[in-house]
Design a protein around this nucleic acid. Structure first.
Lengths: 289, 289
DNA sequence: CAAAAGCGATAGATTCTGCTCATAACGACA
DNA sequence: TGTCGTTATGAGCAGAATCTATCGCTTTTG
């Protein structure tokens, strides 16, 4: 694309429209809040840019009439004006909260935190287009997203706030660990079901190692309900953050650990140094509240 | 439609587009033939009209980036710019002769004069849309027409030029009037076929009356070929303008009258005090040539 | 036939806009 | 900490846009 030079002035076209509708420069001026002189000059300017008269001026008290050229210009001009109005409308609606917002998330957040937040956001902005994506690649990219939930801090050009601490609990079949908190050492050599060693699970396993605990992880799945089902089936016990216990069956019990593991930290992140869409700003406010 | 106030400036949108494409104000300025300062001010002005930033300026040597609002504005802005370009294009094409031209005409002109003229006009302006209408209401109106052929002067706010004189001739079966010109008195009490008494036919019949000639008109049709067919069939003779004899069968002969009738005058008329479309102007030139 | 009314065009004065030039401010990077 | 590559800003100026007032034209009216 090279040099573009739009000499058309939308105000001239609006004046053209008004004059065509009113019939005289004076009445058009009144409608537009101008002087007759201004309208006359605007029309003259427009005629200069299109290179020909757009009105015939019969003189006397008779109304002006569009020339054929004027009709061509007016027809296109109306299109332009409508399009310009649509643009301003779109801007207004955007600022009022209409528009799309892409949010990266993961299971626990989707099931526990998001429902209330999204419901309130949609109540405020019924025309908002909220899109969740739960793909959790190894590289948690914020590219293409407005907001990203993540269990842990993110590096790079992001701003982030901690949403909440999510304490880890030991999930086991009812009766397996009667009484209070379960000592952490009980996990040593225990058969366990767990999530894949990415994200915060990796940190947890590092903590095990530092404490000299070596569990026997017999099954991994990234699906929280799958983990619980395996525990229920007796494959082993599991250490899951509390938010993942949303749909914990009755025959499983969540125990505190002693000492407790440092909780998983859930952050909400967004690209730094970038203006956020109004929807994103509001979403952050809602999440923090 | 009430007050419209298009504050959008197309040049600002073009600048927005250029900056978005180039990445920096300076390069955009170079492309547009402005100064970096001018681009900065234009962007600032645009941001004022839309009520928010359209670019994030990271500072340093990194390129600016569109904000979500900027993307909204740019998307609509491109539409506007394309539409504006289309408008200018349409104006150019109109002035180059593209467009529609409505011409009122009648049989003789359609068959004899128009073919050559229209052919030449279309040769010059291949995309022209020439439309003929042959309706000949009692009130020959020029409303809705760019040009009107008429046999006689028109009253009202029209300009007109005489295209040609069209002499009247007596058409009769071969052998009916041997020798030279036929005396006008021969029409007295003669069986005749004629056009309906409108337009110039009315004038002709007034001339008969003034000369004391009372023909017996036994058949009228507005179709010239119909008139000739009737003459050929022996219903009578006919007095027709020469242009109407375009498709005169061989077994009919056209005779001069003595004294000759004042010829029919064919005019080309168009609305006075109105700017004509370029096509109409050219058409008039072609007809006069 | 002259006066009045309605209309657009134009001139002059004034205010605003938009540009350029020069320079400041700022972040990144060495 | 300077230098580079940006954008932002201030001053000055030229031109554009507007207003007021008036002119000239055409039709209508008396």
């Amino acid at each position: 694309m090279l040099i573009i030079k739009p000499v058309m002035d939308l105000r001239h076209l609006a004046t053209l429209d008004a004059v065509a509708a009113e019939g005289t420069f004076g009445r058009a001026a009144e409608r537009l809040g101008y002087t007759q002189s201004a309208v006359s000059q605007q029309v003259a300017a427009l005629e200069k840019t299109v290179g020909g008269a757009v009105f015939d001026r019969p003189g006397g008290p008779r109304p002006v009439r569009l020339t054929p050229l004027g009709e061509v210009v007016l027809a296109h001009g109306r299109e332009l004006l409508a399009r310009a109005a649509a643009t301003e409308d779109a801007v207004e609606r955007f600022k009022a909260g209409e528009g799309r917002i892409d949010i990266g998330t993961f299971q626990s957040v989707t099931n526990v935190i998001l429902p209330a937040v999204v419901r309130r956001l949609l109540a405020e902005h019924p025309r908002a287009d909220v899109r969740l994506s739960e793909e959790e690649p190894d590289q948690p990219g914020i590219e293409g997203l407005d907001l990203l939930f993540y269990d842990g801090r993110l590096d790079g050009d992001v701003e982030q706030v901690k949403i909440r601490d999510d304490p880890y609990r030991l999930v086991a079949p009812r009766g397996r660990f009667p009484g209070g908190p379960v000592p952490l050492e009980a996990l040593h050599d225990a058969q366990m079901v767990a999530q894949p060693p990415i994200c915060d699970q990796a940190r947890v396993e590092r903590l095990y190692a530092e404490a000299g605990i070596v569990p026997r992880i017999v099954f991994r799945t990234s699906d929280n309900r799958g983990v619980l089902s395996m525990v229920r089936a007796g494959l082993g016990v599991a250490v899951l953050p509390e938010l993942a216990l949303d749909q914990c069956p009755d025959d499983l019990v969540a125990h505190d650990l002693d000492p407790a593991l440092p909780p998983r930290e859930i952050y909400l992140a967004w690209p730094a140094n970038r203006t956020l869409a109004p929807l994103a700003t509001r979403f952050i406010e809602l999440v923090r509240a």
